[in-house]
């Protein structure tokens, strides 16, 4: 397919990018790695007047240690995230989940920020950031804004970003010791989107579960935190049966839709099965 016509801007600094967005407003789309936006343009499902390409804004690619958290720049590619020692040390769930995204070609161009801003409920990374209580940092002409992941993903392909706001990156709190993580992705082929995905972390002390995070991919118009599952596990001894029992709550509060790859009912079933598996793997039992 052939995109409609648009103007093309290629800023080299965050300041230039923010001004470009301030001038173009709702008519603009931000181009990060292009792995989601380009198909939408080619299918003419998106018809922006202006495309603001962030490819040359080098400072947006930085990943840095900020003390009690790790900051991942919005333009860090998936490949960069997977390989980054800070991410692997302090947010291994992100590295593991990112390695399941599509294929090497996509992972070399696609970016974490693009994937979060796109807010596709079938994307793997929104649920991961939600599970890790990430904080998204946005910048507009009026200054910076911090948005907790729980408030960021609003609806299908809709985030809390304002049209003139640029996503700078995401801050991931360091979680300390005793945690085990896992992202369980269920899809029909390696390159396909998740039918359902489960991002989870479990912290154990003296055999009992002290803290636990579970977030679900593609179980509604936005990623869902499975709070009922988390609550059911607090203080429990980590056993397969305990995880299974808790996972029975996984579909509560979700609103999956059906498509060619799975009905809503099947997704709910999968959420329960996969949550139990993800927790078991995360806990290493």
């Amino acid at each position: 397919m052939i995109p409609g016509s648009f103007d093309y801007l290629r800023p080299t600094t965050i300041g230039e990018a923010v001004s470009a967005l301030a001038e173009s407003g709702e008519d603009a789309k931000v181009l990060a790695g292009g792995q989601s936006l380009m198909p939408l343009l080619r299918l003419r499902l998106a018809l922006p007047e202006v495309l603001v390409d962030l490819d040359h804004v080098a400072e947006l690619r930085e990943i840095r240690d900020t003390g009690d958290s790790v900051f991942i720049g919005a333009m860090a590619t998936h490949h960069q995230v997977i390989k980054d020692p800070l991410v692997r040390a302090h947010a291994p769930l992100i590295a593991q989940a990112t390695a399941t995204v599509a294929d090497p070609a996509v992972r070399h161009r696609g970016t974490l920020g693009g994937s979060l801003a796109h807010a596709d409920p079938a994307g793997d990374l929104p649920a991961v950031i939600l599970a890790l209580d990430g904080v998204l940092i946005a910048q507009s002409a009026h200054g910076p804004r911090e948005i907790p992941a729980a408030d960021f993903f609003e609806d299908y392909l809709t985030s809390a970003l304002e049209p003139a706001e640029l996503l700078l990156g995401v801050r991931i709190p360091k979680l300390g010791t005793g945690w085990g993580f896992h992202y369980e992705k269920f899809h029909r082929t390696a390159q396909a989107w998740a039918i359902v995905g489960v991002a989870c972390g479990v912290r154990r002390a003296n055999g009992a579960i002290e803290e636990c995070r579970v977030a679900l991919t593609n179980m509604g118009p936005a990623p869902v935190r499975a709070h009922e599952v988390e609550r059911a596990l607090l203080g429990r001894v980590a056993t397969q049966n305990a995880f299974k029992a808790a996972a029975a709550h996984a579909a509560e509060g979700t609103a999956p839709t059906g498509d060619l790859h799975g009905s809503a009912e099947y997704r709910e079933h999968l959420a329960r099965v996969l949550t139990a598996r993800a927790l078991t793997t995360a806990a290493g039992i």
Binding site: L43, D103, R188, T189, A190, A192
Partner: peptide
């Protein structure tokens, strides 16, 4: 599209 019409890759 190839997102809806699944063809396998080597993996």
């Amino acid at each position: 599209t190839l997102a809806d019409y699944l063809v396998p890759s080597a993996s």
